[in-house]
Amino acid sequence: MKKEEPPLLGYNYIFIGGVDSVYGFITNNNNSYEVKFKPSPYALGDDFAFGEHIYELVLKVVDSPTDKNPPFDALTAPTVAAIIKDFYDRSSLTITIYICDTSDRREMARWYKFNRWYDHFNANNYFRADQAVLDEKDGVLYHCAFIIKANNPNKMAVITAFNRLMDGYNVAK
């Protein structure tokens, strides 16, 4: 009798590499995603001592058969979580910044997605902080977050720098 294969917890992904540490995966609906970690050394101010470890998390659909936003897919969140974990396994000092794209006013949907990705982490191993910034003139809410390993020795410096950024003190020009 053929042994039944265990259910999979996510899609296969591939590490492509490059300056932006690009990963890729393809969904059942043939939507191709790129997840990348873009070096952002000045994101927490140019006097931040650990800027070399800062990366901005970017997730993009690079190819879609319908050219529309892909529908909800239960395997996307665990796949993105696995990719993020893989990246932290390469460097435990990584500081990931995430700023929701507001360009098409779908920032709330993206924020919910980000929260789903984070839910797939082992929360005990990671530390996260976030803040929303309201642009009253344009009525836009910017969601900003960072994730580090809970045992990151630079944790307090990261928290301080993030809070100062959100208070408008060390904003990069």
């Binding site: 790129e34 990348k36 873009k38 970017v58 993009k60 690079v62 700023i99 794209d101 507001t102 360009s103 910034v133 642009d135 910017y142 900003c144 950024l165 959100m166 208070d167 408008g168 003190y169 904003v171 990069a172």
Partner: peptide
């Protein structure tokens, strides 16, 4: 506090412009 908030919002707007350019390049 208001000036700092305006600076932060301006930074985030610039960042969104960069994101759009980056998306196209990707």
């Amino acid at each position: 506090a208001e000036e700092r908030h305006e600076r932060l919002v301006a930074f985030l707007k610039r960042h969104m412009d960069e994101k759009r350019r980056d998306e196209q390049e990707t």
